[in-house]
C-alpha cells in the first residue's frame, strides 16, 4: 500500500481513539504529562509500525497494546510501579473458583466513595484489566491482544478483579456495622 494512503488510513483509524488512549495512559501513569508523553510516543511508534499492522485485524487492540508497552518502558512506569504490571502471581491466587456466597447479594453498591476507594486499592494489574473491559469496552479477545495473555486468563483476571472488589466492599460494609 502506498505510504501516503497508509498514513491517511492510519489517521482515520487513530483519530477517534485519541481520547481513549489518553484516558488509559492517564490511568496507567496517574500523571497528565506522562500520559501525554506516552500517547505521543504511542502515535509515533504506531505510525512507524503501521506497515506491519494487518488490515482487517483489530486496530484498537493493536494500538492499545503499543500504548501499554510504551507505558511499561516509560520513565513513569520505571519510577513507580512497573513491576506490578509484569507480575504473574496475580493469576495464581485463588485457583479454586467457589460460587458466590449469599452475602454477596447483600452488598450495597450505591456507596460511590467506597467503590472508588476499592478500585484505588485494587492491584494495578486487576484495575488495568477492568479498565479495558468497563471503560474502553474492549472484548475479551481484544484485551488478550493488549495484555498478551490467553483469553482464559483475561476471563479469570476480570472475574478475580470483581471478586476482590466485592471482598473489599464487604469489609467496608462490615466495619460500618
Amino acid at each position: 500500500m502506498p505510504a501516503r494512503n497508509g498514513s491517511v488510513l492510519f489517521e482515520q483509524l487513530a483519530l477517534p481513539l485519541l481520547p481513549s488512549l489518553y484516558s488509559h495512559a492517564f490511568w496507567l501513569s496517574r500523571n497528565q504529562e506522562d500520559a501525554e508523553d506516552i500517547v505521543q510516543e504511542t502515535i509515533s511508534k504506531a505510525l512507524r509500525a503501521f506497515d506491519s499492522f494487518q488490515s482487517g485485524t483489530n486496530f484498537r487492540a493493536w494500538i492499545f497494546r503499543i500504548l501499554r508497552n510504551t507505558f511499561l518502558t516509560s520513565r513513569a512506569a520505571i519510577a513507580t510501579s512497573r513491576t506490578v504490571f509484569m507480575e504473574d502471581h496475580v493469576d495464581l491466587f485463588d485457583v479454586s473458583d467457589p460460587s458466590p456466597t449469599p452475602e454477596d447479594h447483600l452488598l450495597r453498591l450505591d456507596n460511590h466513595a467506597a467503590l472508588t476507594e476499592a478500585l484505588e486499592r485494587l492491584h494495578p494489574q486487576l484495575r488495568e484489566v477492568l479498565l479495558l473491559c468497563e471503560i474502553e469496552e474492549l472484548k475479551y479477545k481484544e484485551i488478550a491482544v493488549v495484555l498478551d495473555i490467553p483469553i482464559g486468563t483475561v476471563m479469570s483476571r476480570i472475574s478475580r478483579a470483581r471478586r476482590t472488589l466485592y471482598a473489599q466492599l464487604s469489609q467496608q460494609v462490615g466495619s460500618l456495622l
Binding site: 454477596d104 460511590h112 467503590l115 477492568l130 471503560i135 472488589l165
Partner: peptide
C-alpha cells in the same frame, strides 16, 4: 443480578480522563 449491578457501578466509578 448482583454482578450486573457491580459492573454498572464500576463503570460509573471509573472516570474517563479527557485530554
Amino acid at each position: 443480578i448482583s454482578a450486573m449491578q457491580l459492573k454498572s457501578a464500576t463503570k460509573r466509578a471509573f472516570k474517563r480522563f479527557a485530554p
